[in-house]
Write a protein that binds this DNA or RNA. Structure first.
Lengths: 217, 217
DNA sequence: ATATGGTTTAACCAATTGGTTAAAATTAAA
DNA sequence: TTTAATTTTAACCAATTGGTTAAACCATAT
C-alpha cells in the first residue's frame, strides 16, 4: 500500500518515481509528459507506477506542489532573513540566482502550469498557509520613510527584483537565440549578473546624501 | 487547394482557422491543444481543418512562426527606431508593455515552446534572417564611452530591460497569487510600471554631472 | 445548366495513452 | 518457513486523438 508519508521502508521506490516524474513533468509539462516515459525514467514498469500513484494527476500534483514549495520557500527564506535591506538584496541576487541556475526549468514549469490552471495555485496557498512577504514590504516602506531609498511601491520593488533574477533563466533559450550567444557564454553572463546586479540595483534605489546636507546625522 | 499566400478568395476560412488555432495553441500549448477544439473554436468541422492544414504540426508551425515574428518585430522596431538612447528606453517600456498587455499569453507561449524544442528557434531565425539588435548594442557602448551612462555590458542592459518588461506579464498569475492581488489591482500595477519604469531605469544608468565639474561642456 | 471549389456529415482507422487486471516471481518480515 | 508486501510480466480495455475517406451539399462563376 501507498503511505502518505514518505517513511524509511517504502520510500525508496516512491522517491525513485517522484524523481523521475519531477524530471519528465518539469521538462515536458503535464500534457506533454507520458506515464510510460516516467516509468522508463524510473527504471520500473507502468503497473508499479500506478500502484504507487494511482493516476497521472495524482503524480503530477505531488510534483507540482513540491516544486512550488521549493521555489517559494527559497524565496521566502531569503526575504524573511534577519538582515539590513541592502544586505538582503545582495543575499537575494546571489542565492536566488544560484538556486535558479541549478533548477533552471523550475520557474518556467510552474508559470506554465499555473497559466494552464490557476486554481492549483489558490489550492496550494490555502493548503500551505502561505502569506505575502509582509516582512520585506514593511522593511521597504520603512526605508522609504527614512529616506534611505527613493519612494517606490514595495510591490514594484519586489517585482523588479524577481524579474531581474528569474527572467534571464526562464527565457535563456530565447535570449541565446536572439543574441547569438552559446551556452558557456550565457553562463558567464549569468555569473556576471550574480556579481553586479545587486550593487546596480541598490545604487538605483539608494538615496545618496548630497554634500549640502552632510552635516546632518 | 491550399494557397501559400493568403489571398482574397480563400482567405476567410483560412484566417478563421488561424485565429482559432492561435487562441487555442497559445492558451494550451502544442501538446495541450486538440484539433477538435480548434475546429470548434473556428466554427467549422475537423475535416475542413485538415483540408486547409494537413497536420497539427503544420498548423502549429504557422501559429508559432507568426507569434515569434510578431513579438520579435515589435521588439526590433522599437530598438532600431531612430532615437536618442533615453528616448528609446522610454519608448520601449511604454510601447512594449502595452503590446504585452494586449498579448499577455504570447511570451509565455513562445518561451515554453522553445524550451520544448529549441531547434524551432534556430530554424526560425535562419528563415527570417533575424540578426541581434546591434544598433542598440552600439548605441549603449557609445553612451558608456561618452560617460553619459555607467559602464554596463550592453547585453546585461538589454536583459534588464526585457526582464523588467516581460516577466511581470508572463508570471502574472503567480505574482497575483503570492501577493494576493486581484485582477484590477494588478492591472494598475502594470500601468504604474509603464509610467515609472523608464524614468527609474534611466536614472539607474545615467551618470549625473557632479557640481564640481559643471563648468565643462 | 454544369463544372468547380468550398463545406458538411459521418463513419471510420490506427496509434497512443491512461489505467486495469491477474497471475507469477521476488523480496523482506514474522 | 510461512506470510505479507513488492515488483514484474503481459495481456488487455476504453477513451482519446490525429488523420482519412467518400458521398453529398451548396454556392458561384462561366
Amino acid at each position: 500500500m501507498v503511505n502518505d508519508l514518505i517513511n524509511s521502508n517504502s520510500s525508496t521506490t516512491q522517491i525513485l518515481i517522484l524523481k523521475a516524474a519531477r524530471k519528465i513533468f518539469i521538462k515536458k509539462g503535464l500534457s506533454g509528459a507520458r506515464m510510460q516515459e516516467i516509468a522508463d525514467e524510473a527504471g520500473i514498469n507502468k503497473a508499479l507506477l500506478h500502484y504507487y500513484y494511482r493516476t497521472k494527476d495524482n503524480l503530477f500534483n505531488a510534483v507540482f506542489m513540491e516544486a512550488l514549495k521549493h521555489i517559494q520557500s527559497e524565496f521566502f527564506i531569503i526575504l524573511n532573513s534577519d538582515r539590513d535591506l541592502f544586505d538582503k538584496i545582495r543575499f537575494f541576487f546571489d542565492r536566488y540566482i544560484s538556486f535558479l541556475q541549478e533548477n533552471s526549468f523550475l520557474p518556467g514549469f510552474i508559470i506554465h502550469e499555473i497559466n494552464q490552471n490557476p486554481d492549483r495555485l489558490v489550492e496550494f496557498f490555502k493548503n500551505a498557509g502561505i502569506r505575502p512577504p509582509i516582512n520585506l514590504i514593511i522593511q521597504v516602506s520603512e526605508e522609504v520613510k527614512n529616506q534611505r531609498i527613493i519612494p517606490i511601491n514595495p510591490i514594484q520593488f519586489l517585482l523588479n527584483m524577481l524579474s531581474l533574477a528569474i527572467f534571464p533563466i526562464i527565457a535563456s533559450p530565447l535570449i541565446k537565440g536572439i543574441f547569438e550567444i552559446d551556452d558557456p557564454d550565457y553562463k558567464d553572463i549569468i555569473e556576471q549578473r550574480k556579481k553586479e546586479l545587486a550593487e546596480w540595483f541598490i545604487d538605483s534605489i539608494m538615496i545618496k546624501k548630497s554634500s549640502n546636507e552632510e552635516q546632518k546625522e
